Simulated assay, not measured.
Amino acid sequence: MKADPAVQRRLLDLAQVDTELARVTHRRRTLPELAEIAEAEKVLRAKQDALTLVETNLGDLEREVKRQETEIDQVRAREERDRGLLQGGTVGAKQLTDLEHELATLGRRRGALEDDLLELMERREAVEADVQHARVELDKAQEALADAARRRDSALADLETTEARRTAERRTMLGQFPEPLLALYDRVRAHKGTGAALLQSRRCGACRIELDRSALAHVKESPADEVVQCEECGAIMVRTAESGL
């Protein structure tokens, strides 16, 4: 294939643009913020689970406290009723003895219930502190996720700007190349990643492999307008004074 040497040299500019576009694509997939977001989402789920757990524990304790308070109120009501009967003076001696015995039993029962209630309330207070701590931790996790997402969006916006600018430059460049040369360049780039590179110091700029004697002899013998390709990677090797021929 033939192409004006000046046109071939302009392939280096196109290759530079394509390299930056490829870099943008790669960076978009490998932004460190993406890994941060994945980790932040994992942490957030853990904090949400932790909050759910302590809130469930608190709900269970609050129900237990209410049940205990209700039972204490029932015992107190029974005590008041029995005291009323005692103070009314309308019961017989045997019933009086039974009421006194029942009041003593109720007093012991109420004392035990009140001790249990005190323990429950202390546990509830501790779990309430756990809930507050879990909510603070959840807020921190949500902010960390939001921060990583903001930085990701900013980085993506920068990449989109670069991509748009380079894509426009590439579109302008395409008219400088004959269709066969451009087709070869695009075909090689699609398969190898680099369509054209500078032949510098007898080394292919795409694969960085130094040409052996036979390949170098072939390049030397090729006319300046002959399009030569690297035997290793297939990239179009653009010859300049730096090629070392």
Rank of each mutant, 00 (worst) to 15 (best):
E33P: 02
R152Q: 12
N57I: 15
L51H: 03
R27G: 01
A112Q: 14
L34V: 06
A197W: 01
E160L: 03
E69F: 12
A235T: 06
E64D: 15
E62M: 13
L113Y: 05
D73H: 13
C207S: 05
A35S: 06
E114T: 15
A224M: 09
A38C: 01
Q142N: 14
T52P: 05
G84C: 03
A235N: 03
H101M: 12
E226I: 06
R189D: 00
R151I: 05
A6T: 13
T167K: 01
Q176S: 14
L117W: 09
V238N: 01
A129H: 09
A144I: 09
R9V: 10
R23W: 09
A144R: 15
V136N: 15
D147H: 14
E163T: 01
L96S: 13
R110W: 02
G205I: 06
V17Q: 04
A215W: 07
D139Y: 07
L113G: 08
E122H: 11
L106I: 04
T162L: 10
A241F: 05
D158G: 07
A149Q: 14
R67K: 14
R166V: 00
A104T: 12
E69N: 11
A6H: 11
L53G: 10
R135S: 10
Q48G: 03
K140Q: 15
L198I: 09
R63N: 12
E36T: 07
T25Q: 14
R187L: 08
E163N: 01
A126Q: 06
G92Q: 03
E39L: 09
G205T: 09
P5D: 06
D4K: 14
R165F: 07
E64T: 15
R189W: 04
R189Y: 04
L199I: 05
D147L: 11
H26G: 05
A77L: 11
A148G: 03
L198Y: 01
Q16A: 15
E125G: 04
H26I: 07
